[in-house]
Design a binder for these strands. Structure first.
Lengths: 146, 146
DNA sequence: GCTACACACTGGCATATGCCAGTATGTACT
DNA sequence: AGTACATACTGGCATATGCCAGTGTGTAGC
């Protein structure tokens, strides 16, 4: 017999959780994807596009596209690197930082409700598993398994 | 302290697994998302668009868009329902069924490697958790938790 | 300095996904 | 039958994500 597709189930759960979190963030005008991106940029110290892309396991050009609306709306800016002229660094603008603080309240509420409904301990375990699947180590192991 | 975003981590893992499975399916010309869709349609008995959308937790209009390329390529067809003229049912064409059988081999390989690297038992548990998160019950519980 | 090659990003095209505003159809109530 | 409302889908617009083919820039070897 064949097992249900792990990838399909992961995507399905992503859609569900995306819808749920997006509902909570609706008032902010940010999608959860955008909030997560801004939040991640805030946690890193003016990362290069590549560093950011690696961290969130996103294709470099996909990241570029995704950043466009956020740049247009003035939340983030791309700064040329001082050393290497090929490199651009991603930074939050003042407006972006403000937006992040505001939106964090809505996000916290979604997150809190998730933890309540799903269970804090289970959520922590789930995040651990998801981190493992998102690691380069996992990709390597997978690729070496052939 | 604040926990890492459950939704962001889920999406990140989805991107990773998507890339991994897509690599395996590359030779088929189908994306994993498309394979999963065809496979799901095959498992259901000529579902209506709405039934299919509910099952995979996808917005109805998003589903409509996603089906377009597969219809264009002749893998699936939309059939009018006999009883209710508002309704359209989704069916695999002969070509679609053939493609499904062919592509299943590649998918099985990805799935098998996943189970090997991640562990069969852990994978089963993960799917269980993902199914829970994808359920309408979960959405209801979440919405009622406010 | 020149040539190859590696690396970082950009642009174009395609699919994935969602929201909202229609359009068509069915159903309930009068 | 007629009106009001519910339901199923469609189309337009926007973002999310990926691949591939550039373009510009650094670097190693000659």
């Amino acid at each position: 017999m064949s097992t249900p597709c792990n990838n399909a189930m992961l995507r399905r759960a992503s859609r569900m959780l995306g819808q749920i979190y997006d509902d909570e963030l609706a008032a902010s005008g940010l999608k959860t994807t955008q909030y997560s991106l801004i939040s991640q940029i805030d946690r890193m110290n003016e990362p290069t596009l590549r560093q950011l892309a690696m961290e969130i396991v996103m294709d470099l050009s996909a990241l570029g596209h995704t950043l466009k609306p956020l740049i247009r709306d003035g939340y983030i800016a791309l700064l040329p690197d001082a050393e290497d002229r090929r490199v651009k660094r991603v930074a939050l603008t003042k407006l972006g930082k403000t937006k992040l603080r505001e939106t964090r309240r809505l996000w916290s509420q979604a997150q809190k409700r998730f933890e309540t409904v799903f269970g804090e301990s289970r959520a922590a375990k789930l995040r651990q598993v998801l981190a493992e699947l998102s690691s380069e180590d996992f990709r390597q192991s997978f690729n070496r398994s052939e």
